[in-house]
Design a protein around this nucleic acid. Structure first.
Lengths: 153, 153
DNA sequence: TTCATACCCATTGACGCCCATATAATCCCA
DNA sequence: TGGGATTATATGGGCGTCAATGGGTATGAA
């Protein structure tokens, strides 16, 4: 499995350390296997993270936006300048920067949600509520959900 | 036969392990033959499962959506975070995650129902009742299998 | 010095791997 | 073709390993 999937709830210890779920660690490329990048989610009060390789993908997507649009400026400045490279220790733990912790209202426990090519870190209750709302929105638009889930190649 | 078909009733042992029916195991691709993915059924109190190949298809489709759209967020959080990859041991057994067991009210025995490209896991009595009601609904609405099978899209 | 962080070591519980057995299915040969 | 022998499947249990977590200490920057 080479995608970030599933949910994990890990504790943050006195020193501020938290384990990146083992299955997430295994997805990181062997080179840079002890580094992830973190940044504020644009649309939600959560932290997003991924391996360093993913950064290039994001850059490409932004670059495809119209260079003179407001979106371009907005994304470009809100993403790149906000990115925080972070090291993972030998036990697979890392420190969540204070600013990001505050942004996501995280205190003693962090919820890790797989999102395919990246993952999110939430305050557990807020995160679960958000998943609930996303799911409701999708179910209301049954047609698109069916298309994605049931299409055969 | 490369489809999940038929019904099986297997016991869950003290450690929580249950055998994936042999005929289901044989359908899994040789690569990834010891991994399945599980998730809550959207419409019924049951667990659905399939091989990892199917997930990659879905991931590809989601990734093709507009990266900055709400749909993208909704799909990725409702689908990827709900998916639970699970390993199958050498004897062909796996663990049903607690959360899913609770969702499907499964305790000591699990019913496996083939559904073609995926399968469902039910609490045996609930599952059998569901089949019964489905059958009744079909009869009451006087739909014949023939009607359904010959319908054009 | 003081604070922050990385490294090292320890603990606990869960899980994977291995081996064993019973029952069922299949095979094979006289 | 009958019946013993082999194989497959479902199931049970021991035990080592790993993931998550906690804490001590060294290192380095302010």
């Amino acid at each position: 499995m080479d995608l970030f999937v599933s949910k994990y709830f890990n504790k943050i210890d006195k020193k501020g350390r938290v384990s990146l779920p083992s299955s997430f660690r295994n997805i990181l490329p062997k080179i840079n296997k002890n580094e992830i990048i973190l940044y504020k989610s644009i649309k939600t009060p959560s932290i997003e993270g991924c391996g360093v390789g993913r950064l290039k993908e994001i850059a490409k997507r932004i670059n495809n936006l119209d260079f003179f649009s407001e979106d371009y400026d907005d994304f470009s400045s809100s993403i790149f300048s906000e990115i925080i490279p972070t090291n993972i220790d030998k036990e697979g733990r890392f420190l969540i920067p204070e600013e990001l912790k505050k942004y996501a209202k995280i205190q003693n426990e962090a919820a890790f949600f797989g999102q395919g090519h990246f993952f999110q870190i939430w305050e557990p209750k807020i995160g679960l509520n958000n998943i609930e709302s996303s799911r409701k929105r999708l179910l209301e638009e049954k047609k698109s959900l069916r298309t994605i889930l049931t299409q055969q190649k």
